[in-house]
Design a protein around this nucleic acid. Structure first.
Length: 840
RNA sequence: GCGAGCGUGGCGGAAUGGUAGACGCACUGGACUUAAAAUCCAGAGUCCGAUAAGGACGUGGGGGUUCAAGUCCCCCCGCUCGUACCA
């Protein structure tokens, strides 16, 4: 019988489904385990990134089930978003139609992978049955004062009459229209994530099972700074300008003041100063991406205003409007100290401003480190810490400054001027102002009769949708036409999975039982925003007393990208890998036979065509081969390279495994170990138990590639064992059965099929994970390297646990050691059971 | 620009500060075959050496700590992710 994946995979998928093996139910007699992979955007087809992500999650889910946990492993669809609107415009369809048909296709594809989901919990976030709950949440937030409206600046495409996402702005122009993007002030809804900044920062320390790099990125994103605010009086004016600094100790090195182009004072100055006005306009035309702002040349406009130095009244500091000062951070204004700040230094050089060093150092300019203060009046001689404390004290005495903590994190803007998102449940009444929609009038559903031929937001141009009555006074009123940022949906979907069929977003019981998510797995690109928003959202729900939980994800694993080589024709046109054929390390076009330029290995992307369609792979090799390859090559958190030979290797292994088990003679043989074990039996059993330990440890550590390698080693040992008698057959059967349980989470279909072939009545998905039996381990004889001056010169085989002197004597008998020891060693370092090192 | 991560044979990768290269891919030789594919067996970091014994070099580059560094510290280079309206 040949290994035929398409046959066995269909069979076992059906069986799991019929027997409801993966249906999750609350069971207080078992420890629960909630495994979740980041749910996909329904773009139309699954890609290798999905295959990788969901294979990793499925391994964990099946492994934990085998360890006796009550596992919840759900899947759904992050269904709102820009691409649906783009598709609607391009294909003259509706976003809902496009989205739901994509979901249908992708669901079929996911099912072919044999993933252990409880499909009864599936949902799409674009369904009112989902988004109605977040409308209620938003109203709760609004009533609790953590949702508010404020003005922001957006990218405006004057031709499309629409707001553009940063992604849709290419070189300062709208991607579709090509029009120069304008900056437009607009009111939008915000959530007060900054109110929770301290807690979000502080609790990172308790996320013990999160990768350090993600925690560091979140800490930096929140960006807590201790410093001071100082209020400067503007000369010949009643106005003041308040600045924030983390280095009040460098106040005597201040040589200018810089304020943001969006600072209220800038606008005030611009009223009577056309050049200032022009400068602000120039700054507004700049990209508002942080990245571009920082990279842009530092520009400043010298206003006619000055402030006097708080401690040296005779010194006046000019006020500049400067493009690198962000209105959102601190107070939107700084004092410039060029000797001790890189950006201030660049600015001072450009505008020929004074540079006064105030922290002693070896003539490094700018010097941003600590040191003793000079040129600083009452701060002279103090170190940085002392000088910061004293300067704040003195500023406080003058009543113009105080210690201040600022955070870099800004409030979360959740408004989008788009159709395909959750409507924000607010009504605007000329009499009552903004009024939240009463709960009994929810959900506010999206209209289906929309027209994308009209420019701008279809909700805005819809003939009737936004017209309504004020819930308070019943007069004519209009609905909010903004919809939520799609991060809103993904900030609580994991809670919805705990209980789909409830009049509330989720039942208290199910939430308490299943949450938090024990293992969350997804792309590292979500390290900050999605994960931080989700952490915030739990706090916000706790704040409005919906739940009592702060941290949604106990353990987090981030996966790397799936990459592939790129190919181009001689004329620089991208080619799909299946258009290219390889001959003797040179690549040719499969049809034209023209030579092909092999490019760099890059992240799989449609634009570069370096994609492999998972469908094709599953059709050719089956899901198990695809899954095995996903696990075997690279550690999950690193980028992996898709290679055709790699997938062939996985295919070959499964065939070897299949053929070996199918041909096993198991008639009248059971897997109980014979009473008299031979030396080779013991050796194989030792190998088995090392493998069990290794695979268990590797899975716990998320090193699935090592788990696969260990299983392969065990299989090599089993398959090369010479079977002579029935005792041998028993030992081999014993090993094979354990091996099948070990690989079941990786390649579940073949594991089930072979399990059944061994006449097992129960399915392997319900089998218990094996325990390692360490009594089989051979531990009496060990190999110890012997070094001379740290270089390995010999290996000695010795009894375990010999003392230092015994080890030394044995080591000194080695010919090669004596050859290198022409002197008495100065020092001998011996670590028992590990190493002997002679130092000469 | 800023923040974070990564860099080990021809390739993917393995290695509590203690034998660098597990396991796999590609490769080479052999067996089987009329032949090929598949399969099985063997070899293999590079260089010197005889195909041996053994040695020299070797984890992006440069320096340092240590009896001992892929691993720890400092500097540099390259690549990747994020950078707040892509998801």
């Amino acid at each position: 019988m040949k290994y035929n994946p398409s046959l066995i995979e269909k069979k076992w998928q059906k069986k799991w489904n019929d027997l409801e093996i993966f249906k999750a139910k609350i069971d207080y007699n078992k420890p629960k385990y909630y495994v979740l992979e980041m749910f996909p955007y329904p773009s139309g087809a699954i890609h290798m990134g999905h295959v990788r992500n969901y294979t990793l999650g499925d391994l964990v889910a099946r492994y934990k089930k085998a360890q006796g946990f009550n596992v919840l492993h759900p899947m759904g669809w992050d269904a709102f978003g820009l691409p649906a609107e783009n598709a609607a415009i391009e294909n003259n369809t509706l976003p809902s139609k496009w989205t739901y048909s994509n979901i249908e296709i992708m669901k079929i594809q996911l099912k072919q992978m044999g993933l252990s989901y409880d499909w009864d919990r599936e949902f799409a976030t674009c369904n009112p049955d989902y988004y109605k709950f977040e409308q209620k949440m938003f109203i709760d937030f609004y009533k609790a004062g953590i949702a508010y409206k404020k003005e922001t600046i957006v990218n405006w495409d004057p031709i499309e009459q629409t707001v553009l996402a940063n992604e849709q702005v290419v070189d300062g122009r709208g991607w579709r229209s090509g029009a120069e993007v304008e900056k437009k002030k607009m009111k939008g809804w915000f959530l007060k994530i900054s109110d929770f900044a301290e807690d979000l920062l502080h609790e990172i320390d308790n996320l013990k099972e999160w990768p350090d790099r993600v925690k560091i990125m979140q800490r930096n994103w929140i960006g807590k700074s201790n410093g001071a605010t100082i209020s400067f009086s503007i000369n010949n004016s009643d106005d003041k300008v308040e600045i924030f600094t983390t280095r009040p100790d460098t106040i005597f090195g201040a040589t200018f003041i810089a304020i943001s182009p969006q600072h209220p004072l800038s606008f005030k100055i611009a009223i009577n100063d056309n050049k200032a006005n022009d400068f602000i306009k120039v700054c507004e035309r700049q990209s508002n991406k942080a990245e571009d702002l920082e990279k842009a040349d530092k520009l400043g406009y010298e206003t006619s205003f000055t402030v006097s130095h708080p401690f040296k009244k005779e010194i006046n500091l000019k006020i500049y409007i400067a493009n690198f000062i962000l209105m959102d951070y601190g107070t939107g204004a700084i004092f410039g100290c060029p000797a001790h700040d890189q950006r201030d230094y660049d600015f001072a050089k450009k505008y020929s401003l004074d540079i006064i060093p105030v922290v002693a150092n070896d003539n490094i300019i700018p010097y941003t480190g600590d040191g003793l203060h000079i040129n600083s009046d009452f701060l002279n001689g103090l170190d940085t810490k002392e000088a910061i404390d004293l300067s704040i004290k003195e500023l406080q005495k003058l009543g113009i400054g105080k210690e201040t903590v600022t955070y870099r994190i800004r409030d979360w803007g959740v408004s989008r001027q788009r159709y395909w998102g959750c409507p924000i449940p607010i009504v605007f009444c000329s009499n009552c102002g903004e009024v939240p929609v009463p709960e009994d009038q929810l959900p506010i559903c999206l209209p289906e009769d929309i027209n994308f031929d009209v420019k701008g937001n279809p909700l805005e141009s819809h003939p009737t949708w936004k017209k309504t009555r004020c819930p308070k006074c019943n007069r004519n009123a209009v609905r909010e036409t903004d919809t939520f940022d799609t991060f809103f949906e993904s900030s609580w979907y994991f809670a919805r999975f705990t209980d789909l069929n409830h009049s509330k977003a989720f039942s208290d019981e199910a939430f308490k039982y299943w949450m938090p998510v024990d293992q969350y797995i997804g792309g590292v690109e979500h390290a900050v925003m999605h994960l931080l928003y989700s952490r915030f959202f739990m706090r916000a729900l706790k704040f409005v007393k919906t739940i009592d939980l702060k941290e949604p994800f106990t353990s987090l694993q981030t996966q790397g990208m799936v990459c592939h080589q790129t190919f181009k024709t001689q004329k620089e046109k991208w080619l799909f890998p299946n258009q290219v054929i390889r001959k003797n390390n040179t690549f040719f076009h499969i049809n034209t036979k023209e030579k092909v330029v092999a490019g760099r290995i890059e992240k799989m992307s449609k634009s570069k065509k370096n994609v492999i369609d998972p469908q094709q792979i599953i059709q050719t090799y089956g899901a198990d081969t695809a899954r095995l390859f996903m696990l075997s090559d690279s550690p999950p958190n690193r980028d992996m390279e898709w290679s055709d030979s790699g997938i062939e290797g996985s295919w070959r292994f499964l065939n070897k495994l299949w053929n070996f088990v199918i041909k096993l003679e198991t008639e009248n043989i059971d897997d109980n170990l014979p009473t008299n074990l031979s030396k080779s039996h013991k050796k194989l059993l030792a190998m088995l138990n090392i493998t069990i330990k290794e695979v268990t440890k590797s899975i716990d550590n998320f090193q699935f590639n090592i788990a696969v390698a260990s299983v392969r080693s065990l299989f090599n040992a089993i398959s090369s064992y010479e079977i002579l008698n029935n005792d041998d057959k028993s030992v081999i059967l014993h090993n094979v059965k354990k091996l099948l349980i070990l690989i079941n989470p990786m390649v579940p279909h073949i594991a089930e099929a072979l399990w059944e072939n061994l006449n097992e009545k129960i399915i392997i998905a319900n089998e218990r994970w094996p325990e390692a039996d360490e009594s089989f381990e051979e531990k009496d004889i060990i190999k110890i390297p012997v070094q001379v001056n740290g270089k390995m010169r010999a290996i000695i085989e010795v009894q375990k646990d010999l003392n230092n002197d015994q080890l030394k004597q044995i080591a000194l008998k080695e010919k090669n050691i004596l050859k290198f020891l022409n002197d008495t060693p100065k020092k001998i370092i011996i670590v028992p059971n590990r190493i002997v090192n002679f130092v000469i």
